[in-house]
């Protein structure tokens, strides 16, 4: 049945194209490379993220752990992907500890969705960020983890190393592995479905803290 349907659809399409339309040359005259300075690009990213109601902090490797501690609060159970550099994290206390996810949902030590629904936060790194649109790309790399860990917890603390910030979408896309499971995040989840009034926080994490690290 399926093969029949395929054959028939392709036959229809070939018939529909009996006039042999010529594909045009795709003009790619849009911008591919930023002309802004590094500072301008990072400023733009911060501006756009704040516009989306994300919290943005500029930290160094010396200050990042304290910042994460502050954002987590004194009492927090939070998830980190296996590949995240633990030197960036605050010291463990009795009330504040990290739970490592093995980045593979099939492993016994992987957190279930129920586990993820109970933790307070998740801390990850990111692949690349686009300043023009205020978009952070996660592509499942070892320090970003599988998709569920940045989705189910209600608070996402995302580290954006400054050398991963670019201005334009084409620049950002070129740094992502096409077949990797990818999530592009531009602020916390939001809806405008009721009278177009924007409400931040629906099903995805309702708090997004972005740490610009460098």
């Amino acid at each position: 049945m399926s093969a029949d349907a395929k054959t028939q659809i392709l036959e229809r399409l070939h018939g529909a194209l009996a006039d042999h339309p010529q594909a045009p040359e795709v003009p790619r005259g849009y911008r591919h490379t930023s002309e802004l300075s590094r500072e301008e690009i990072v400023d733009m990213l911060e501006d756009r993220l704040v516009d989306y109601k994300a919290n943005v902090f500029r930290e160094t490797t010396q200050t990042v752990a304290d910042r994460i501690a502050t954002q987590l609060g004194a009492s927090a159970r939070y998830v980190i992907p296996e590949g995240l550099d633990t030197a960036l994290l605050p010291e463990e206390t009795a009330a504040r500890r990290a739970i490592v996810d093995p980045n593979d949902g099939r492993k016994a030590s992987a957190l279930t969705v129920r586990d993820l629904n109970r933790v307070d936060a998740v801390v990850t790194s990111s692949t690349v960020s686009c300043a023009q649109t205020g978009t952070i790309f996660l592509s499942g790399r070892p320090d970003e983890g599988r998709r569920a860990i940045t989705l189910v917890p209600d608070h996402h603390i995302c580290i954006v190393p400054l050398d991963t910030v670019v201005e334009l979408i084409p620049e950002a896309m070129s740094r992502v592995e096409p077949t990797a499971p990818t999530t592009m995040i531009s602020g916390p989840s939001a809806t405008s479905d009721i009278e177009l009034e924007r409400v931040e926080g629906v099903h995805g994490p309702r708090t997004l803290d972005v740490i610009l690290l460098g």
Binding site: N103, A148, T179, S189
Partner: peptide, 17 residues
């Protein structure tokens, strides 16, 4: 400028999704 979430996936990624 951009919608909050865009997902991209290719077939099945073992251990993720």
């Amino acid at each position: 400028r951009m919608n909050p979430y865009t997902s991209l996936w290719t077939g099945v990624t073992p251990g993720d999704g």
